[in-house]
Design a protein around this nucleic acid. Structure first.
Lengths: 228, 228
DNA sequence: CAAGACTAAACTGTCGACAATCGACGCTTA
DNA sequence: TAAGCGTCGATTGTCGACAGTTTAGTCTTG
């Protein structure tokens, strides 16, 4: 007989997840550029600064390494990843591949509810455009694209998108600011949603290509301007 | 003036890369099914068995977690990942997405040399088919597909393929044996190479779809037969 | 006899310590 | 004077230990 009270949707509390916290803080420091690309990440230094021992810091660093934010050099330590123009191309090329696929799947799974979520996120993008907050703008932009991946309903694909997003955030972070006209950016999401609603795979791919290709060219241009 | 002795082609030695070694051994144990899906991976046990302390084992386990072979549950430890039918679909769906893209890129970059490498790998597949060694057959199969990703010349994409491959190896491992007729499998690679040589994106995608779709259906069928 | 309380063993998360290694700086020598 | 060799502080790789939590097993009780 079942005597346990039914689940109420409470989040499992982790209490002590030092590794996760350290990873989050390190990620922030990296994408915000407080840790410059190429610079060394000294375990003991981070540990002391955060008031923890080196063990959790090491594990967190390994996580960021897998995510591509740090690179490990045996017996020399971790370094903040440097992005060359080639890296940008690799990342955006893969992003294109992933989001094309996600968009086609999303179109297949689209329901009135998910359609509205996308619609609303575009509204948010327009609203955010008025705020002078580039970081926020970038976040809401990703949220739209992430939504597409969520609707695609492939966990593995969603995780890949998140990994790529953290790399892209880092690139964007080191560029500084990206958007000339946030409203323009917000508008360019409209045809993507329209294509997904209509549902023709080729049309979807074409609009995704155009939208992401635009970002790719912009970011590529700006990165090439930076001395590296 | 340059007085350093010129490079002699010596391989960089890692000497002490316990984490890497442990990760490799753990991976083997997982894909070979010696660690059953769902079973707990006790840090101290692994450490004792390997004659090392828990620290490297923990870091290795985190690596495998990121690769999707283990799942971590806070304060309860690591467990060997269980695959549901949905997971298979997610993985193969993503694989399809990735390899379509890789094949199109590979066609664009194809040179006589890389063409011959692919050709030779198909020969190897045929030779391996005579040996009664399913594991080897699977490895050589992956090697062909990995070659395509290498020729595509996108590092990020290659890493993704490797991650997916380790997940697929695990799935294959728990199925037991996959191939009814290894020669048949070897033959089905021919049209893929042919399509890449010809270079029409649509034809390439079609053949990749057929080839991988075949594996997907086979694996999916077998996994659904297993009680899980 | 099953649900819950209690207890002991096992395990994880974290820490501080120590040896091995790396990188920078100054010293030697041709 | 610059290449090459020691030397020394800084840093990583690894370990053993300890506290707090989870789990399995036993006991109690309605």
């Amino acid at each position: 007989m079942r005597t346990l009270s039914p689940p109420v949707g409470l989040p499992a509390l982790t209490e002590t997840d030092l590794v996760g916290q350290v990873a989050r803080l390190l990620t922030q420091a990296v994408v915000e550029g407080r840790l410059a690309p190429g610079s060394k990440v000294v375990e003991a230094g981070i540990a002391r600064e955060l008031g923890v021992s080196r063990a959790p810091v090491r594990e967190a660093a390994r996580l960021l390494e897998q995510q591509g934010l740090l690179v490990a050099s045996p017996r020399r330590g971790f370094f903040v990843r440097k992005f060359a123009a080639d890296d940008i191309d690799d990342i955006y090329d893969l992003r294109l591949c992933v989001e094309r696929h996600a968009a086609v799947l999303a179109a297949r799974n689209l329901t009135p509810e998910t359609r509205d979520m996308l619609r609303r996120q575009i509204d948010v993008l327009h609203q955010t455009a008025d705020l002078e907050d580039p970081a926020r703008q970038v976040e809401e932009d990703y949220r739209f694209h992430r939504l597409i991946c969520e609707i695609a309903a492939n966990r593995r694909l969603l995780r890949l998108f998140d990994d790529l997003a953290s790399e892209m955030r880092m690139v964007i972070g080191l560029i500084g600011r990206l958007y000339d006209d946030p409203h323009e950016i917000a508008r360019t999401h409209e045809p993507v949603l329209a294509a997904i609603e209509q549902g023709h795979p080729e049309r979807i791919v074409a609009h995704i290509d155009y939208h992401i290709g635009h970002a790719w060219r912009e970011v590529g241009k700006l990165v090439r301007e930076i001395p590296a």
